[in-house]
């Protein structure tokens, strides 16, 4: 009886979290942005499946311990590439977050810096990259 309840609980949790994940991606307008950027509107179905598979693989990595076999330099390359792609994704999400998108128009109007938006945006982008680097390169600061 308890097992059935656990199964039900797990299923319910999964459904809610899955919906939340998709809703999160939808709300941020990241995917439409990428599709427009690459003009690949016809490949929407592919993107859907890729997101699904990505989430499933994430689950596998999370719950099971496994490691890739050692293949010369390929492992290093994969690490660098996956780091880069994680970063691009997080960058897209960070840009889409309201902190930037809703705040900048108001800020620039308030401060009378309407023509300096480009500069302000660049400052934010550089700040994000540098902040991230500092966070990883000097972990002793906050541990």
């Amino acid at each position: 009886m308890k097992r059935i309840f656990l199964i039900l609980l797990g299923l319910a949790e999964g459904v809610i979290v899955g919906m939340a994940l998709v809703a999160f991606l939808m709300v941020l307008d990241v995917i439409p942005r990428l599709i427009r950027f690459t003009s690949t509107k016809s490949k929407i179905r592919l993107y859907q499946s890729v997101i699904l598979i990505g989430a499933l693989i994430g689950i596998l990595i999370d719950f099971y311990d496994f490691a890739l076999p050692n293949l010369f330099f390929l492992n290093e390359l994969l690490v660098v590439l996956s780091g880069l792609f994680f970063g691009i994704f997080v960058g897209l999400v960070a840009g889409a977050l309201t902190e930037v998108l809703k705040v900048l128009p108001i800020l620039s109007r308030r401060l009378g810096l309407k023509d300096e938006m480009k500069l302000m945006l660049s400052a934010i982008i550089l700040g994000k990259a540098l902040g991230s680097l500092v966070y990883w390169l000097f972990p002793q600061i906050w541990s």
């Binding site: 950027f37 690490v79 880069l84 970063g87 997080v90 960058g91 550089l126």
Partner: peptide, 19 residues
Amino acid sequence: LLLQVPYSLGIAIGMIIFF
């Protein structure tokens, strides 16, 4: 760091793509 330095650069690239 092998993962995290490219990750940091990726953030900048992602934001540039977005904006």
